[in-house]
Structure formats: C-alpha cells, structure tokens
Nucleic acid binder design. Sequence first.
DNA 1: TCTTGTGAATAGGTTCACAGCA
DNA 2: TGCTGTGAACCTATTCACAAGA
Lengths: 203, 203
Amino acid sequence: MKQIPSPSKKRFVTLARLLAQTSQKKITSVELAALTGWGEATIRRDISLLELHNGVSNGYDVEIVRAAICAALNIGEEKSLKHNCCIVGLGKLGEALLASSSFTSTPFELVAGFDTNVNKIEIMKSAVPLFPTLDLESKIRSLKIEYAVLAVPDEKAQFMADRLASYGIKGIVNYTNVILNLDKKIRVENVNTAFVLTGMIAE
Amino acid sequence: MKQIPSPSKKRFVTLARLLAQTSQKKITSVELAALTGWGEATIRRDISLLELHNGVSNGYDVEIVRAAICAALNIGEEKSLKHNCCIVGLGKLGEALLASSSFTSTPFELVAGFDTNVNKIEIMKSAVPLFPTLDLESKIRSLKIEYAVLAVPDEKAQFMADRLASYGIKGIVNYTNVILNLDKKIRVENVNTAFVLTGMIAE
DNA sequence: TCTTGTGAATAGGTTCACAGCA
DNA sequence: TGCTGTGAACCTATTCACAAGA
C-alpha cells in the first residue's frame, strides 16, 4: 500500500465517519465534495490512494471505500486493533466525558477513570471502573492503556501529563487550558473549548 | 500587514497561549522549537511575518510577540473584539462545559445555554443565563451570539446545526458524533473525543 | 454522457544556509 | 559567538485537464 500523505489521512478520518452515517449505497466525488467542502479532485486523489478501482465511472461503493479507509488507517473496530484509553480527572467535565463518550464502533475502549479524590471515586456511579490517581501507573500498565483524556484542573495539567508520559502513554486529548510540554513522540490534541474557538476566528 | 498563511495562523494560536503561560521575559526560536516540536526556521519565519524586528540576535521579547500575535489574528481579549457564544444542549456534557469553560483572557464570552427541557433550565443553577431551545433564534439575534458549542444527542445534531446555521451562527464546536453537513461558510470543528482519538492513531 | 483515475502544472509551506546585527 | 531574518531551494499537496471505462 502506497504511503498516505498526512492531510489525506486527516480527511480520511472524517470521510470514514461520513460514509458510515450516510444511507446511500453509492456516492460520487461530486457528492462528497458537496458534503465535505473539499475539492472533487482532492477527493478522487484521496480515494485513489486506496487503490480500489471499484468506482470506475459509477461513483464509489460507500461500504467498500469506508472499509478500505479503516484498513488503510488501522481504525477499524475489530477487537484486534482496539486501543485502551482512560479519563484522568473526574471533575464535572471528566465525569460527563466518562458518561457520554461513545466509543461504540470506534477503535477505542474506555477502560478506566482516575481521580485523586478517593471519596469521589467510591461514591460515583459509573459503568467504567474508577481508580485513585495513586494507581495510575499500575493501572496504565496492567490495563495496557495507550491514550488518555486529560480533564484535570489547569494547575495539575503539566504535572499529570508528565506522569502519563512517563508511564508510556502514546497520546493525550487535552481538555485543559494549558499547552503541554512533552516529548514530541507523544501526540497531544488540544480540545479545550476556548482554544478551539480561538482557532476558528484566527483561521 | 502581510497576509498570514493558514498553517502559521494555527501555530500562532498555540504560540500565543504558550507565551502567555511562560514565565520567561525573553525567548529564542530554539527554545520555542523545543517547546512546540516545530522547526526553529519555521518559528523564525512565523514570527518574522509579524514584522516586529524586535528580536535581533537577542531572542524575542515574550510579551511583545504575544501581543503582536493577538493583534494580527484579532484574538485579543479587549472588549471590542469579544465574540459571544453559547452552549446548545445541556445534558451532562453541556452542563459540564457550561460550568468549566474558562473564557477568561480569551476573545470569547459565554452568554447563554440552551436546552429543550424547560424543567431542567429552571432547576439548573448556572452563572450563565439559560433558555429553552424555543428561544434559540430570538436569543441568538438579541444577544448577538456568533459561535455555538453543540452538545445535543446525536439524533438532534444535524437538525440543531441547521437551525443554528439559519440563525446566522458563524461557527460550531461540535461535540457530537455526527459529521455535520452545513454551508461551507460556517466553520465547524469536530472535538468529539472518539473522533479526536481516531485522528491521533491515523496520523 | 457521466464518472473515475492520473500525469503534469501549479500553488503553498518548510527548511536550508547564510548575511547581518548585537 | 549567538541570535534573527530571509532569499533560494526543496518538498508536498492541490488542482487542472483529459484519457479511458461503463
């Protein structure tokens, strides 16, 4: 399989979702362009990277393309490529994320929630197992947690991120207001609302 | 002022935060490269776009650069360039975002929360005024709301987004699992945890 | 006639490498 | 010597434009 350029990968992630949520069986590059706002040539080039050759002059088969994208990016929902993740910090936001994060039909499994407040994790009701932050290292290792959602107070953000990093986490979804400074091999995505909004007006 | 390329703008948003949270007075391109993971040449080129010429052979003055970025991108926190925004959908997540979204020292003001459940908005305690979704149009117009945080259940996501769009909203921070289909002049940022995580492993 | 797939052209950013200043 | 600022080279991605298949 050809190496996929990273802008194409980003688009693929969106495309995969889009194809999963459409009711059409077939779809053309023009339709996809209208749905996504990207150029139709861009879409054709992206999909051609998958080397399917199933669309010739007929539009693409939605399910075949979707499956091919998942295969190419390793983002299928098969058991074999599930990645375990956790939520660190169970304040209002962390708790809400714990309850509302839908990882069904994604390559992720939410396997733990952590908070320093032992009282809280005893009282809280949750389908996901909760642990004191004290157990962070042991649980990350024993549960083979690869990704973390960081929802601690800003003051603890860098400290907690450092701990996560040292325990071998691969990526952090950062809800705090802090720009984290970590080894560059760790992927960080800043999803703090204010930060995202700022990006929107700057664009 | 020179036109700033959009990758530079994205970096500037991060840089602005970074400079705001550092305690240093002066900072060099090499230090910034270490903090951000970007190339030092990239950083120098970015900052040179601001045409400050204040750094010559001495490193940059943190506060001057930060202020210049805010000025260039219009992301200062002065009253004059505040943008009003709201949260639509006050489920667990919406409620948490309402309570925890810190817009202090950002160009945003959270001015409203909306939910269809009239009961809930009456009971809920919140520093931000709450309204029934019925009043969405009138409040968006009267409060001059420009941006919305979408935290409704997936089934209502597209419908709600369409309403927001028709009332003239400029951008949506989308917490739902749905890829929205809207007029391309409306900025949408997908921050759904599963979606963001998927982007991380695809990269 | 409609659509894909793709060489070739173009546009856009990044990185190099060094002149110039403190 | 240590730093920025920037032409020039390089690299990458997008878009054009059209051949070819159904």
